[in-house]
Nucleic acid binder design. Structure first.
Lengths: 228, 228
DNA sequence: GTTAAAATGTGATAAATGTTACATTTTACT
DNA sequence: AGTAAAATGTAACATTTATCACATTTTAAC
């Protein structure tokens, strides 16, 4: 059986896109624009949540810094995604950090305004519940992959997942090696070695930072533990 | 800095315990008793959700079976916990399986009845949102641990986490080695070797299946990557 | 209580991955 | 454009962890 790439998508764009046009309008009326340069923190671990963020353009990583200082990236958000509501909704400090991978244009909704929206928009509650219960499944899948699959299979899988996040760039993944290593859960050096192997097997093309998928099917087979 | 054991608890008992007495009564009026013998499946991956479960006695593991047939256990529920609502709330198939680790007495609330409760109990929605956003943080922490920490530290951490789940047994952990290995994310043999080491270092006592924590502080240091 | 089946322990070996220490290339800045 | 800083590539080596193949113990069933 093959892994299902969709099972690794939060679908955090669905919340906004599922709203009625009038409710979406209301949402934007309660939001203010923010700009983040590449590398800037959008929120950070142990900080107090002050609102939620809607990415209008750009990509952002959420990650946790381990005790040894190594980051574990567990999701990459892209344009359209709503994020940062977890800590807000359970009244806890951020458990994770969020950093702009590129210049990001963001609409920010303050806690106060979000509370207003929750009251005014009938099914927003419902949509959040749906989304978070879906996210639970995604994280569970992530745990299983990280704990069980060997590096080679993890890399194949995450390349396919990332390809989807770079759809508008023809699937060309542009991400520092260190970040990719921190997604896949390995050391930068080990990642580099494997990328070279993948290149030699004509699974991917590598142009400096840019990684382009060449053989989707074969990568999917590798990700699914089906070697020839 | 030391790891915080509490950050690995779903707190799934809070949903019920936070309800008003009258609402809790309503909950039980809409529930029916079920008994599961040790080893029986409570729900399973790709099955269609039919309701939610409240554990009255016993423990249950939720896990996913990887493509190679190896299970990854990512949570152990205990008496008081409400579970199985994720797949129900996002109208998806179960992403994971749940199996009774011991004889379990359970109160089952059917989907129909749960929908009724959601309407009749004002803040149930709110409590579910709070709990799921909290769970998000727990899973994120779990991912970081599994992806980054070496086996020795993971085992130390999970022994401490499990101790809390066996509080009424004086913290004596009773769990098949295979299950413990599937929690920690390692092979049964590697686990056995490490348990022996821990025993020799007087960190734990092992009596057949029963594992008892002897030196909580030292285990916490190991879990926190602080070796002497 | 006896016996078969499960579960666990053990040791040798192999494989995967991390680490270290640089060389080299790319990027960003003035 | 020139230069320093950051990112990436490389290779040898060390370490961790998995695997295999059994021995042994424990548990469950009749």
């Amino acid at each position: 059986m093959k892994v299902n790439i969709e099972k690794f998508e939060f679908e955090s764009d669905k919340i906004l896109s599922s709203l009625l046009a009038q409710d979406r309008k209301l949402f934007f009326e309660h939001a203010e624009p923010l700009s983040f340069k590449k590398g800037k923190l959008i929120f950070y671990e142990s900080g107090i949540p002050t609102g939620v963020f809607l990415i209008e353009s750009g990509r952002a990583k959420i990650y946790k810094t381990g005790l040894d200082g190594k980051d574990q990236i567990f999701y990459v958000y892209k344009a359209g995604d709503l994020l940062g509501y977890h800590a807000l909704l359970c009244n806890e400090q951020y458990e994770d950090s969020c950093e702009a991978l590129e210049a990001c244009e963001i609409k920010f909704v303050s806690k106060t305004n979000f509370d207003i929206l929750l009251k005014r928009i009938q099914n927003l509650n419902q949509l959040l519940i749906q989304n978070m219960s879906h996210e639970f499944g995604v994280l569970v899948n992530t745990i299983t992959i990280l704990a069980q699959k060997p590096l080679r299979e993890r890399l194949a899988l995450y390349l396919l997942i990332l390809k989807g996040k770079y759809a508008e760039q023809d699937g060309e993944i542009l991400l520092p090696r260190e970040d990719l290593a921190n997604i896949v859960g390995t050391a930068r050096e080990s990642l580099g070695r494997l990328l070279k192997e993948f290149k030699e097997e004509n699974l991917i093309e590598v142009n400096n930072k840019i990684i382009k998928i060449q053989d989707r099917d074969k990568l999917l087979k590798i990700a699914s533990s089906q070697y020839t």
